[in-house]
Design a protein around this nucleic acid. Structure first.
Lengths: 119, 119
DNA sequence: TGACCGTATGCGCATATGCGCATATGCTGG
DNA sequence: CCAGCATATGCGCATATGCGCATACGGTCA
């Protein structure tokens, strides 16, 4: 029975990657295209330290790919399930928020229908 | 632009519901059928305090329904997206673990193909 | 009404987590 | 080899989170 526990633990730690705005912001930046750390910093407005740490965490969990070019490091998402989860959650959440007031969904890359067709 | 941030924050807190083994265990217990707190305690082996707290958290977030019958309280999952997410993550995780050794998937209600066809 | 069962919650502690600062490491151009 | 840029990381602090203990609350039955 504790085999279930083990899986649940893994699942939990998988979800924990998505349970924080900062990491989501980073993922949101690179969910469509590969970017260097510096570009992510610029795009997100987060500190270099923070971005680098989040990337390391995501990379360690095996959901990102890393490519070095000179002194720069480029990251991209390899775990498409992760992005799918974000998309599903975004749809769910956005509909809730929208019950109160309208949202500009175009701003969210996670949302379906923003250029990338991936199904 | 900070409209995105707001959504990301909501998404993060949505995922945080799933980022912990205890809560997943509770969800796993009631993902198919409504159960009372006591039954969940028995099935999960968690303490009553802990179960009750997790249920309260999930209920407060609006993903569970609550029904009182006498002195007992029954909970069930109303947010089907949540279960879908668990299923998707489980599939992903299980395949990874299985690269090393086989799993008895029949034990996991979250896994597809265990009685409930839901697509 | 009082004893008992089922459920919820305030409190406190232990631990985990996020994040900035300073600094280290690695690479490049001169 | 040195200066400077890009990225990573050790350290420490502030905060958040999980969870148990004790207890409160509400319902039931005699």
């Amino acid at each position: 029975m504790h085999e279930v526990d083990e899986v649940l633990e893994s699942v939990a730690s998988y979800f924990s990657l998505l349970s924080e705005p900062t990491r989501l912001k980073v993922l949101h930046a690179i969910c469509e295209r590969e970017l260097s750390v510096g570009e992510i910093v610029k795009e997100t407005g987060l500190t270099q330290t923070n971005v680098s740490r989040q990337l390391s965490a995501l990379y360690a969990r095996g959901v990102l790919a890393r490519r070095k070019d000179g002194s720069m490091v480029f990251y991209r998402v390899t775990d498409t399930t992760l992005v799918e989860l974000c998309r599903a959650a975004c749809v769910r959440i956005a509909s809730r928020i929208e019950e109160r007031r309208p949202l500009k969904r175009a701003l969210l890359k996670f949302m379906p229908g923003n250029g990338q067709r991936q199904k």
